[in-house]
Design a protein around this nucleic acid. Structure first.
Length: 212
DNA sequence: CGCCAGGGCCATA
DNA sequence: TATGGCCATGGC
């Protein structure tokens, strides 16, 4: 299993190359995007981010009326819930004076627990923020990760923490590596393994039991 | 047209 | 602990 995790990374990197994620200008945008993209196509998030552009500042966004915020992020779906989640996140960020620098002083585990305590931020969103906005060595697990390895015929741990632990102990503890790997998994999912499991051009073909 | 996206919460059993 | 309903828009 551990070997496969490393091999899959090599294969994906060879097939798709460097991904340079997260697609956002600032760390704050990354955090906002991480919430908006929950169970949503990134395309829809892009439109919302465009609407949000004049308010892409934590203080301004926090003081936005929730109804206004709802309309701005409408295209990202679940807009009422997500507006609340964004606001809850910003209320937490206020504890750090809305400053990224303050966040950087905080311990990773502390940050993770705090993020998870915010209503609307679960494991994947928290870890996405930690990895892609705060450059912490945290491996992000998503549905694609489970799907890909399941297709390869492996029985992964069901619990999020266990699966994350597996990746983090198998791979070198490196921010750039975790960043690339998760990005590659998402990129791969966009091209292959979407609905039909059979893909002859799949870079993981040799390992995929569906194709044998 | 119907399906489903880079989840998470909450109510049940 | 483990399912199931729910949230909602837009691309394909």
């Amino acid at each position: 299993m551990e070997t496969v995790i490393r091999v899959v990374y090599k294969q994906l990197y060879r097939a798709y190359g460097r991904q340079h994620w997260w697609p956002a200008k600032t760390a704050f945008e990354v955090m906002v995007g991480a919430i908006l993209v929950q169970n949503t196509a990134w395309k829809n998030v892009e439109k919302a981010m465009l609407q949000l552009e004049p308010y892409l500042d934590p203080i301004q966004m926090f003081h936005l009326p929730v109804e206004k915020l709802e309309q701005l992020i409408r295209s990202s779906g679940f807009f009422r819930i997500k507006a609340r989640r964004l606001h809850a996140f910003l209320a937490w960020f206020e504890n750090y004076d809305f400053k990224m620098e303050q966040l950087h002083h905080q311990d990773t585990l502390q940050l993770r627990n705090q993020l998870l305590s915010i209503n609307g931020i679960g494991p994947e969103t928290a870890d996405s923020i930690l990895l892609y906005a705060l450059d912490r060595p945290v491996f992000v697990i998503d549905a694609y990760t489970r799907r890909i390895f399941k297709r390869l015929g492996f029985d992964l741990p069901k619990k999020y923490q266990d699966l994350r632990y597996l990746f983090e102990t198998t791979l070198v503890k490196d921010v750039q590596l975790y960043n690339e790997y998760h990005a590659l998994i998402v990129q791969h999912a966009k091209v292959h393994c979407k609905v039909k499991p059979i893909c002859l051009s799949c870079p993981l073909l040799d390992h995929c039991e569906q194709n044998v």
